[in-house]
Design a protein around this nucleic acid. Structure first.
Lengths: 242, 242
DNA sequence: GCAAAAGTGTTCCGTGTACACCCATGA
DNA sequence: TCATGGGTGTACACGGAACACTTTTGC
């Protein structure tokens, strides 16, 4: 939530955006056999948060999520999926934002629209780690990848949002075959298995995994990949668009 | 969307409610081996719609959905599940509401908050058909059950909302064992099977279904039910709370 | 006794699990 | 030739599909 960039484009009343409604995007990446999440740190404070933003009054909800994801990753055509709406009053805590605004010279009047209660639509994004350019913003000191297993303290309920995003990703992994979005266009079976094992949090049998994946008829076998390692060269595969 | 009752409690600016954000509830019931949906018809017009409402500024999102569902069914402790957020601009069509307001003596000024664009959080509810008292409202001519296979024309994208709700129900049926919410507390295996067959839209094998359900260890077998029919009396079962 | 529905048993098959075996690669 | 990792084959268990059989009920 709270992409202050977009907030700055508007005024203290939030004109141009739908009030009280936000989007939080959990951007997942995969690198070094680990799941990563893209997080931002607000300028001049220690607050770490999910990338987020608001919906323009005449903008499709999905487009708004795409816009937010694109702003932080530099990517187009990002895979995005809704997973939950966070609407409890208990998540409402304006204190961090008040501090951020004051620390950055924005007048934090009590009735500023950003300090109101927000309901947030949770999206998760699956991206090719190697293609992402984490992009901060004038109100962010940094924007970068964090290991899912070593997350820093996050504002509000953002830790819970990530947790629910991961659960949704697990649930839909086999069903909707969305994992490929986390890999480069060409990958080996070993990479794919490592990805699945990381997401599901358990070891899988190599032979069974291979046959299951090939049996789905969604993989196209390409040339072998000679890594220079002293072992058989694995084939490269590509996700076969239906 | 658009529970005008709640709208009336507020003024033309929608004070007290979060603007641009609504809730639509697909209330499913099961009767005569058919899935039913609870719909409302707006007074003095032919517009049929899902029960809906808005979120009070200090109300939990889930509580708002519960409140809406309770208002139309008279029930407490309703099973409710989020399934999607509908946020496309293409769903925005204020014309029906303008007509409804004018037909019912409400001044439908162009800037009335109800005529703005709305994003709607979709919930589905599973209720015991026999316990529901469909309850209309001063702005509804009627509130009642409609067969899922014979729905009337609905306003806006409400037909699509119902379709997505049904898909979500199907997806979660086996996984989360939520079907029991559609039956009375005590039921026969035949009733349960008929429910599953109706939701999934296909015939199931009686023997396999029986063993699968019993194998889940979630059913408590009660006394037999003598129907008066010339056949073996089925046992009654009750969902075993974990 | 008979028809109808409920409950249980039995067989078959496909899929996943577990493990074995071969193949390719470069040191 | 050896270690390493990739690809494939095989035996087994489990659960669902299909069907048979028995039990219960009221006419």
């Amino acid at each position: 939530m709270k992409a202050f960039k977009t907030a700055n484009e508007s005024d203290a009343r939030g004109n141009g955006f739908i009030p009280n409604l936000a989007i939080d995007v959990v951007v997942f990446g995969f690198h070094d056999s680990q799941l990563k999440v893209l997080l931002v740190k607000y300028s001049k404070t220690d607050y770490v948060a999910l990338p987020g933003g608001f919906i323009k009054v005449d903008e499709n909800l999905h487009d708004a999520a795409e816009r937010v994801a694109k702003e932080r990753t530099g990517l187009n055509n990002i895979f995005l999926d809704q997973f939950f709406v966070f609407g409890d009053m208990s998540r409402y805590n304006a204190q961090p934002f008040r501090e951020v605004m004051e620390a950055n010279g924005m007048p934090a009047k009590a009735d500023h629209w950003l300090l109101n209660r927000f309901i947030s639509v949770g999206y998760f994004a699956l991206v090719d780690f190697t293609k992402v350019t984490p992009t901060p913003d004038k109100l962010f000191d940094s924007c970068g990848w964090y290991d899912l297993n070593a997350l820093p303290a996050l504002i509000q309920d953002h830790a819970e949002i990530i947790s629910k995003a991961l659960n949704a990703l697990r649930d839909r992994l086999d069903d909707k075959l969305i994992g490929f979005n986390l890999l480069p266009e060409e990958f080996t079976m070993g990479q794919l298995q490592a990805l699945y094992e990381t997401i599901l949090g358990k070891k899988l049998l190599r032979s069974a995994f291979q046959r299951k994946m090939l049996g789905l008829n969604i993989l196209e076998r390409l040339a072998k990949k000679y890594t220079g390692a002293a072992n058989k060269a694995p084939y490269l595969y590509r996700f076969k668009a239906k």
